[in-house]
Design a protein around this nucleic acid. Structure first.
Length: 871
RNA sequence: UGGCACGUAGCUCAGUGGAAGAGCACCGCCUUGACACGGCGGUGGUCGCCGGUUCAAUCCCGGCCGUGCCAACCA
């Protein structure tokens, strides 16, 4: 007999099996292999990042699917990789250099990039090592990086094609500017800070002809330096006559027109007049465009007032605000202030207050790209899980503005455009040009900017598979099967992959998009460093083992729900590993070799547990197919714990501890068979544990790894309804007896005897051993034996009656109410359908609970109660 | 302001147009030869509120209240 350790050693298993799997090439995908393709391309983590709980969830769930499909015979590829994460990475390195007193600009572009690459090489392997500790079965031979050679080529190809198609263009626009990061930002990289305490500050512009004034209000008084209009509603009786006249700017020599604009101005708000700063406000900018106003920039890139700000030039934005207010007040133009709660746009990365600035940037034309991306989801080529996220996707794409793709950074894909010093023409090409494509001048200078980091991410599902080459991988695995990610990057990433995939490949990049929730702490708060409630997944793995850790994540991953992570949950789900291990040890005590392939004649309980196993397998598959990870986990948990351990193992003991014979053979076969399936069934969720169970299963010494065994099929374990019914009744009988015991305070060693209990003596005589073993109740006929401590009431259908023993009047009331309700339903359905159709169609419990039966039950319970009290 | 979710046992969550479920917590009993990281039994819920549809609603529909998220935001 093989002795197993008291406890499963998750760490030892991980150390042993992962290298074996890698060395054995079982993660490796072959496009020529058989099977329906199944592919996931990993959402690439930041190359210099560390594994956090979000990654842990994201990758555990992907691995569950990947392993399930791989075992199920699909030709599976899980392609891993990392992202260069433009601003984020540059920011980290800049900060490190600054700590050494080195500024990026002093270093120069070349040197700085060397530093970034160094940093990437130094800390870039971390996240991959941590992913491996999770047990993820990626094909590491295909690992990619957004700035590797192939992907850089894809980025360039994409840029050139879109440029040639007129979908990428250069223009001077009002854009979001980060005055600390010194770069343009896309709309998405701007975050709004809520509930900022601010003020609305009012002041007057004197009319140029001295005939009066017009009062405007603003949260940013300093922007008045760039005002080029005052807008009023054209139908406002207070101001309509002023349209076309001018006010005098108090600080700069400028006459400002009063314009009528019904779109911007709300007559009912404030004074009904609005100052217009077209160069530093998006709404005002539109007014400027509509009325052909001058757009005067008043800020430098680092957020100081420029030469257009007259005497304020050189002041920081916020300093200028104070001075402008003071000076306006001094001129007697201040007209009041009130507190105002507002929102503030901040750079996602640097935290700087974003300044809208007029700037020349590269843009991607979105309308022609977005329309097919909307259609693809509308027509079901891609499905969101849960479904409601498609609304988020639609609402953004339907209203999307052109995407500012250039960044004034150094870390990233440099824009493949060359400016001609001679004629100003821009040459864009797949190869670096030597001369201007217009005038032929060789005096070319490459554009200084790099592309938004999401520009390369948008190509990820096909660039990683080899695009723009027509690779075998691309042909085999595009479109991919599912994209798994968080809701926060539906805009940033999902939508962009959709339109780029559709544009270049003519097909959606993935058939399903699974959106998982956020991992929060046990109180439902977001994890954050400042709150100190961040859970480190690596620490959690060290503590409970990777299998238990993954089981917890999987079990908590409900569709469309955030996860509240707590040690309690982890401990609770971890215990499952121990429970299974002990059942496994029990099996090893009784089963030392692989049973004959042909099943021996099986007993009632053997057939029962195998039927339940079949149901479990079906439910697990259904759950996984519908991305219900939580249900898959709890299905396995419930079957194993409550049916296999609590019932089957107890049932099987009398055979296993009894004499050799068919019953023992059958029980051994059954134990082995359950674990043979269970080892595979749990594998996707708990791969190391599953592998250990598989390898240590008697007779599996040469069976190879469990991770490529066929996933169990429900059809392998057919069920017989009669068997399920019989065992169901038996369980009820046992439960009822136990309950009496507990209520009457009878120790389990006190033997009970059931006399003339029809159900037990007749139908279930064959299960007497189980009744004795599990409830210590013997079944007999005839007189009440004197030696029995208590005689359980005899009669028909004892299993029901026993339950009735504990009836209270409350229970009786409930039953009577139910009778009333059912009575009505039954008579209605009978009169409408006719009795025969009713019997054929009505749900079983309606039939069973006909009035007479229920009434009989109520009566019976009452009399039983009386009988019992009399004992 | 708009959109989307959510509201089921003390807590975290499943669930269904036809007899309310799990885990944790709690209360008893039990160290029985896989497991005390265990076993057995139990307490606990007008399934947010109000209407409607239906023979029947926790489930479908409408309204309301509460919570969360996303998006737009008024100078």
């Amino acid at each position: 007999m093989k002795t197993l350790a008291d406890h499963y050693d998750a760490h030892a298993a991980a150390l042993r099996y992962y290298p074996e799997w890698e060395a054995g090439g079982v993660f490796h995908a072959d496009p020529a292999a058989a099977g329906e393709p199944y592919c996931i391309v990993i959402p690439p983590p930041n190359v210099t990042g560390n594994l956090h709980m979000g990654h842990a969830l994201n990758n555990t769930l992907q691995d569950v699917l990947i392993r399930y499909k791989r075992m199920d015979g699909y030709n599976v590829l899980w392609l891993p990789g990392t992202d260069h994460a433009g601003i984020a990475t540059q920011w980290v390195v800049e900060r490190q250099l600054r700590a050494q007193g080195i500024e990026r600009r002093d270093l120069g572009r070349e040197k700085f990039l060397e530093c970034v690459w160094e940093w990437k090489d130094h800390s870039g392997g971390n996240i991959v090592r941590q992913l491996k500790r999770l047990g993820v079965s990626c094909d590491w031979s295909r690992e990619r990086f957004t700035m590797d050679e192939g992907l850089s080529r894809a980025v360039r190809e994409n840029f050139v094609r879109l440029y040639e198609e007129g979908l990428i263009y250069r223009a001077t626009r009002l854009i979001n500017w980060d005055p600390i990061g010194l770069t343009a930002l896309s709309d998405l990289e701007v975050e709004t800070e809520e509930n900022v305490q601010g003020e609305i500050w009012s002041f007057a512009y004197p009319l140029a002809d001295g005939s009066g004034e017009i009062v405007v209000a603003t949260t940013r008084p300093e922007t008045m330096l760039g005002d080029t209009a005052v807008a009023v509603h054209p139908e406002d009786p207070r101001y309509a006559h002023l349209i076309g006249r001018f006010v005098q700017h108090p600080f700069v020599d400028r006459l400002i027109p009063i314009v009528g604009d019904a779109i911007l101005v709300d007559m009912a708000f404030g004074s009904g007049a609005v100052k217009v700063t077209p160069a530093h406000d998006f709404n005002d900018h539109e007014v400027g465009v509509r009325h052909n106003l001058p757009m005067i920039s008043i800020f430098t890139n680092d957020g100081k007032v420029n030469e257009n700000g007259g005497i304020y030039a050189g002041l920081d934005r916020f300093e200028a605000r104070k001075r402008v207010k003071a000076d306006l007040s001094a001129l007697g133009l201040f007209r009041g202030r009130q507190d105002h709660v507002m929102t503030l746009p901040r750079s996602q990365r640097s935290g700087a207050v974003v300044e809208p600035m007029i700037s020349t940037q590269w843009f991607m034309r979105m309308k022609p790209l977005a329309t097919p991306a909307v259609g693809a989801v509308e027509h079901g080529f891609t499905t969101f899980w849960p479904d409601q996220w498609k609304n988020t996707y639609f609402s953004w794409l339907r209203d999307v503005k052109d995407w500012c793709i250039s960044r004034q950074l150094w870390w990233g894909h440099r824009i493949p455009a060359w400016h001609c010093a001679a004629c100003g023409h821009v040459t864009v090409g797949r190869a670096d040009p030597t001369e201007c494509s217009k005038c032929g001048s060789a005096d070319l200078k490459q554009d200084e900017d790099v592309l938004d980091t999401w520009f390369s991410s948008a190509l990820w599902p096909f660039s990683t598979l080899g695009w723009p080459e027509h690779s075998a991988d691309l042909a085999r695995w595009y479109p991919t099967s599912v994209l798994m990610t968080g809701f926060d990057i539906i805009f940033f990433w999902v939508a962009r992959m959709m339109f780029m995939g559709l544009h270049h490949m003519g097909q959606v990049p993935f058939k399903d998009v699974y959106i998982h929730g956020l991992i929060r702490d046990e109180h439902g708060d977001k994890m954050s460093k400042t709150k100190g409630n961040v859970v480190d997944p690596v620490e959690a793995i060290d503590r409970v083992g990777v299998d238990a850790f993954r089981m917890t994540l999987t079990a908590l991953a409900g569709l469309g729900r955030d996860i509240l992570w707590s040690e309690k949950q982890v401990d609770s789900w971890s215990r499952f590993v121990n429970k299974v291990w002990n059942a496994y040890r029990f099996t090893h005590m009784h089963v030392t070799e692989r049973p004959a392939a042909e099943a021996p004649p099986l007993g009632l309980y053997d057939r029962w547990i195998l039927a339940r196993l079949g149901t479990c397998v079906r439910n697990v598959r259904e759950a996984l197919d519908g991305y219900r990870f939580d249900l898959a986990a709890s299905e396995i948990y419930a079957f194993t714990w409550y049916e296999f351990c609590d019932w089957y193992i107890e049932f099987s003991k009398s055979a296993l501890y009894g004499e050799d014979g068919p019953a023992k053979t059958a029980a051994r076969y059954t134990l082995w068979t359950v674990f043979h399936a269970l080892a595979r069934l749990i594998h996707p969720i708990m791969p190391f544990f599953g592998e250990e169970l598989w390898r240590e299963l008697p007779g599996n010494e040469h069976a190879g790894t469990g991770m490529i065994q066929p996933y169990p099929r429900a059809g392998d374990f057919p069920g017989d309804p009669a068997v399920l019914r019989e065992v169901g009744y038996l369980q009820e009988a046992i439960i009822a007896v136990r309950r009496i015991r507990s209520e009457k305070n009878l120790a389990s060693k006190v033997p009970l005897v059931a006399v003339n209990a029809g159900v037990l003596t007749g139908m279930y005589a064959g299960q007497a051993a189980a009744l004795k073993a599990l409830a210590n109740v013997s079944v007999t006929t005839g007189e009440r034996p004197a030696q029995a401590a208590v005689v359980v009431v005899a009669g028909e259908e004892l299993w029901v009656n026993l339950e009735g023993v504990l009836d209270t009047s409350k229970e009786r009331e409930r039953l009577e109410k139910e009778i009333e309700k059912l009575d009505k339903s039954i008579s209605f359905l009978q009169s409408r359908l006719g009795n025969e159709a009713f019997v054929a169609k009505a749900p079983p419990h309606l039939l069973a609970k006909s009035r007479a039966e229920l009434q009989g039950e109520v009566d019976k319970r009452a009399s039983l109660q009386a009988a019992l009290l009399a004992l």
